[in-house]
Simulated scan of single mutants.
Amino acid sequence: MKVTVDEDKCCGAGNCVLLAPEVFDQREDDGIVLLLNAEPAGTEHARVREAAAVCPAGAIRIGEGA
């Protein structure tokens, strides 16, 4: 799994951080997503997929490579 985020699309809702805190965080100043791990372990895949699905801005993309 390869995760990317579009910071320009992010609205700072924080759902991704709640669902997958090992993969996502938020900037202190404006709440925009920070990608902590672009290639998360298999144990994180379901949570990352859920985070992408519930992201209100559609800022999280998941590729199945790497």
Rank of each mutant, 00 (worst) to 15 (best):
E44A: 14
D25P: 04
E50H: 11
R47I: 09
L35D: 10
G12K: 06
G12A: 09
L19A: 04
L18P: 01
D30R: 11
A51K: 04
A20C: 07
V48A: 02
D29H: 08
H45N: 06
V23M: 01
D25Y: 14
L19T: 12
E28K: 10
E39H: 12
F24A: 00
F24N: 00
L36S: 07
H45D: 11
G14S: 02
A51F: 03
E39T: 14
A41I: 12
G31V: 11
D8P: 02
C10K: 03
A20K: 04
D25A: 15
V48Q: 02
V48M: 03
Q26C: 07
L35W: 08
D29A: 14
G42M: 05
P40H: 03
K9E: 10
R49H: 10
V33Q: 00
E44V: 06
D29E: 15
D30I: 14
V23H: 03
G42Y: 04
F24P: 00
L34M: 15
E44Y: 05
E44H: 00
K9N: 00
L19I: 12
Q26I: 11
L35Y: 05
E22S: 14
N15V: 13
A46Y: 06
P21M: 09
F24E: 00
K9C: 04
N37T: 12
P40T: 04
T43D: 13
I32T: 10
G14R: 01
C16T: 04
